[in-house]
Structure formats: structure tokens, C-alpha cells
Design a protein around this nucleic acid. Structure first.
Lengths: 306, 306
DNA sequence: ATTTGTCATAAGCCCTCTTTATGGGAGGTA
DNA sequence: TACCTCCCATAAAGAGGGCTTATGACAAAT
């Protein structure tokens, strides 16, 4: 390890020239001119302290020294080429997605199959977590996170805007005639600012506070489950609960949907924007997930400024 | 072979960094700054399409991709280092000398042993031939040739000036009292211009031509042998026949020695002037062979212009 | 004798790589 | 908590290596 390495570009030229026994052909292979190869070989010969080739009239021969050097170099470069291309191919066939629970459970599970059908040679690996991971410290390729799309150094694509409307189990929906009726029910995630915003948009002035356990972690997913279980009314994103609504497991009693000020974003490091598996996933999901979700036949979307 | 190689300097940086798991230490080993290593790794990561290291707080870890790349690269670079240093060491331990017969037989055999004692790890290989070899087309390191030292592209050191004087076997020397007596004997190499020059210096005007077989190849060596065999008188370089003269096998009847207009030179390509085995041989032989030879107690050297 | 194939050399320019300088993040420590 | 230190990232700027173009030489092939 103490010996300084010889000039590598010279070795590359030598390796090619030794295989072809021709500077001209080596140059062609390396995509450079014959003069450049000649120059590099000269450099190397000076470093080695002996000629590496015999320049015979119309052909090139390795000297003894060259003969001693060539096999090792050819092997070494072959190893480099193999290792490199193998690792690159492998790197392209695995896509690790860090994603928040709600999006994973409510959207991705229904659609990821299509991606995998379209790209059968890309293996998808999920990493479900709540925090915005640090791409420097994990082996995640892309992440799907909720927020406003203002992450420095990352490319962001809005997938679904986080609109919201109250939903509840059908067993609780009987008493609900007008928005104010919701206040009689247990509110899931009572401290969520969405309640204030939605009631304001619905014309209900007073929203009394409500005591109870606070849920902070990924509200959507857990709150949706509680609502499904009939534990109260929750403020959910319709696009995520399309299936439950259609099946009648959940009821959205009022068509009023507030436009969320944040959304779910696909993000990845700018430096890796051209990695094949990232391109494939981005192109697919951006075309697949409408940024402004279809709220259904009875949706009324009201923009809300927070 | 079709895949273009990745940037080699980036690989070199990666290889060192992968061994040390530290950009800083890798930089130290490579004799550059930490910033340069960081830059190179970044380049490589873009080429590969995936991060190679995880930048954890106070330590560095290889990613899966890096882990896949590292062993091959370390092995390849080790092979390069080994092959290179081995070939260079071997190249330095063999010295091939192309030399003319006369110098080889008459001077080198008596002295080369000393060189080999002084440099026991340099293996000497001789290539005895008459023509001035083309260093581009043979694996000769240095050559010893007769001439005037005016070879373009080559470094020349005068080893021994080709002085000359007539010599003959003692059996023939009885009749010889004055230079003109030599004309009665058979002259070996009769067309050699040295005859005219020497007789002119000796004050003998007429030198009649002489018929007989012509000898052209390396005159010194063959002519000396013929003279030793008592076949006539030859024009020889005293420095080459010191031993024969001292032993009485040859006689130099007159102290008059003409200074030759050419000599024996050590030559080698300028580009290789610093190759260790060439330096060693040059330094030794230049100090060993006096360019203007000692002509002995009874030598009178007369400069001759051709 | 001319053409062709191959390598060497000179001159010049550009781009890569390096260094310098600086900042940020997270442990370790008082 | 505050500070210090270790380590990597980044920006800017400079230098030099390495490439290209152009030309020449040499010898074999035509």
C-alpha cells in the first residue's frame, strides 16, 4: 500500500494496447486518438524504466517487461469492469421506498402492483417510517412524505394534495343532519387544526375543545382505523378512503371537502434524479397519482388558507 | 470490453476510502486533500447511480452497493500495485548489453566480473553483434559500438579511443628493424586505411597495395587472432592487446601509436538515461575505461587526422 | 514509385482535478 | 449548556495533465 500507484490513465492505455497489440486500435476502443495512446505509453515506459513495446515495422510486440506487465493489468482491468458493471446493474434493480404509513396503506398497496408489472426487473423494498429520512444515512432511494414540498436538496413531486373532510362509521351517521351535529360525537384527533378549518368552511362558528388522549403519530392511518371501528368522527383525506366510502364502511356525511395546504410528495436527492430505478418510479407514480385528487360525485372543494 | 471504464481516479479514491472507511485517511494515503476524495467519491456515486457510503456522524460505512464494489476494486488495485512493482523491479535487475565482438573479447571479458561483483543484483546479458542495433526494435538496454559518437537520440560516452599500431607474432618479429621492414610481411586486413596512416606517421612513403582475401567484419578481433597465429602483421589497438603484449604472445615492434579518429562508445537512448541498471553500468564503465588509453612505457602517440 | 498502415512528435488548448477556505452536524467533555 | 473536535460537504479558483490536431518518418504492400 505504500508504493504510489502508477498513472492510471497510462495503465488503461497500456492494457488496451497490450490486448490489441496496436496503438491505433487501442485508441479506437478507448475513444481517443492514436497520439494520446502513444503519449500515455511513453509516460508509462518512463515510469517503469524500460520499453514496453517493440515498435516493429507494421506490428507491435510486447517486450519482456511488457509481457510481464500485461497479464496482470488485463486481469485487473477486467476485474474492474466486471465489478463495476455488476454493481451498477444490481444497484439499478432494487428500489427502496421510504413511505409514511398512511400513504402506504391507503394508496400504495392498491397501485404498486401495477408498477411492478410494468417494471418486473425492479425489486421494490418498502421502509415504512414516519420521519423524513436522511438520504445520507440510509439506503433509501426515494421517499413519500407529507409536507409542503419545500425540502432543500431534494426533488419533490406533489402526488396527492391532503384534502380533508369528516368521516364516520355508518352506525354513527344516523343522527348527523348538519355539520354542527358532528360536534355531539367524539372527535378523533381533536387537536387537529383541520377541525377548525373545516367547521369554519361549513359555517359552524364555535368548535369546543375536547379532552381525551392525543394522537400525534401519522394521524390519517390510525384515525381512519378508529373511525372505521365506530369510535367517532375523523377528519380524513377522501382520496385515501375511496374504497371504504364506496363499500359503505365509512360515510362522508357532507360533500364539503377542504383543500389541504400540504400534501403527499415523492422526494429524492437531486443528485440521483437520473438513476434508472428512480426515473422509472417517478415517471410512473407522477402519472398515476393526480396531484389534485378527484373528490367524487358529491365533493365540494373549498380552498382553505391556513 | 465494450463497457466504458469508470473514471479511474474516482475508483482509486474509492478503493482507498473503502479500505480506511474514512475520506480523511484515504486522502492522506493518496497524498491529496480530503476535499478531493470527497469530490471523487461523489463523481463515482453519480456514475454508479447510487451512494457508496453512508455518512454517519463520526464514521463512514459502505452501502450495499459500496459493499458490492469494494472487494473487487481492492483486489484489482492490489493486483495493479503488485504487478507494477514486480515488473519494475525485474526490469531493473536485468541489463542487456549489445556489444561488438572485439570489445567484448578484448576488454569486457576482463572487467565485467568487477561490475557484477559491485552490482550482484543486476543480471548481465550479452548480445554480441556487429550492427548498431535499433533500440526501438530490440530489448537491448545499452550498446557498445565503434564510431565517432555522433548518433542522434542516443547518449554517447567514449570508452576507449581506437589507437593503433602494427603488431605481429614474435616468430615473425626477428626480421623487423625499421618500419619499412613490415612491408615485407603479409599484412592482415590490407585495405584498412590504418596502414596508410601509420606508415605515413612513421615516415614510410610508399605503401604498395596487397592482394588477398578481404576481411571486413569486425577487424580487430579476427585480425588479432590471425596475428597471434603468426599469419602476418596486423594493425591493432594496444589497449585491447595489453595482455598479449605483456605475455609476449604478440610484439609491438615500434612504440609509435597513432591516435584513432574514432573509438568505442557506450550508447543508450536518452529517454532511458535514468534507468537504474543503465546508470549503474554507465557510471561504472565510464570510470573504468580510460577514454585515452595508456599506451604503455614505450608508446608514442601521434595524432592523425584522417 | 506510390500508396498504405502504423507509430512518434510538436504545439496548443481545455477540462479535470486539486487545493484552499468555509460551513454544518454530531459526539465528546467540562 | 456550551464548547471543542472530528469528519464530511461545498464553493471558488487555479494549475497542469492529457487530449486533439497536424505533421513526419518508416517500411511493407501494391
Amino acid at each position: 500500500m505504500d508504493e504510489p500507484l502508477p498513472p492510471l490513465s497510462a495503465l488503461r492505455a497500456f492494457e488496451a494496447a497490450a490486448r490489441h497489440l496496436s496503438f491505433t486500435r487501442a485508441a479506437t476502443e478507448l475513444g481517443m486518438t492514436q497520439a494520446a495512446v502513444s503519449y500515455q505509453i511513453k509516460i508509462l515506459e518512463e515510469r517503469v524504466g524500460a520499453p514496453l513495446f517493440l515498435r516493429l515495422p507494421r506490428r507491435l510486440t510486447l517486450t519482456e517487461t511488457g509481457e510481464r506487465l500485461a497479464p496482470g493489468m488485463i486481469e485487473a482491468f477486467q476485474l474492474i469492469r466486471q465489478t463495476f458493471s455488476a454493481s451498477r446493474q444490481k444497484a439499478q434493480t432494487v428500489l427502496t421506498i421510504s413511505v409514511v404509513q398512511s400513504f402506504a396503506a391507503k394508496w400504495l398497496v392498491d397501485h404498486i402492483g401495477e408498477f411492478q408489472l410494468n417494471f418486473p426487473n425492479i425489486a421494490v423494498r418498502f421502509d415504512v417510517s414516519q420521519d423524513l429520512i436522511d438520504f445520507n444515512r440510509s439506503e433509501v432511494d426515494v421517499a413519500i412524505r407529507s409536507g409542503k414540498g419545500d425540502w432543500p436538496g431534494l426533488v419533490s413531486h406533489l402526488l396527492i394534495r391532503a384534502d380533508f373532510a369528516p368521516m364516520l362509521a355508518p352506525s354513527l351517521a344516523g343522527e348527523v343532519r348538519e355539520p354542527a351535529d358532528l360536534l355531539k360525537l367524539h372527535r378523533i384527533g381533536p387537536n387537529d387544526p383541520w377541525w377548525h378549518l373545516w367547521f369554519a368552511a361549513a359555517g359552524v362558528g364555535e368548535v369546543p375543545g375536547q379532552s381525551g388522549p392525543e394522537l400525534v403519530v401519522d394521524s390519517q392511518f390510525l384515525e381512519g382505523n378508529l373511525a372505521l371501528a365506530g369510535r367517532g368522527v375523523a377528519m380524513l383525506t377522501p382520496a385515501f378512503y375511496r374504497r371504504e366510502l364506496e363499500a359503505g364502511w365509512l360515510v362522508q356525511p357532507f360533500p364539503l371537502v377542504c383543500a389541504g395546504s400540504f400534501g403527499y410528495w415523492l422526494v429524492y436527492p437531486h443528485a440521483r434524479r437520473n438513476a434508472p430505478q428512480i426515473r422509472a418510479f417517478r415517471d410512473w407514480i407522477v402519472g398515476r397519482a393526480p396531484a389534485v385528487p378527484d373528490v367524487g360525485p358529491n365533493g365540494i372543494v373549498v380552498p382553505v388558507t391556513r
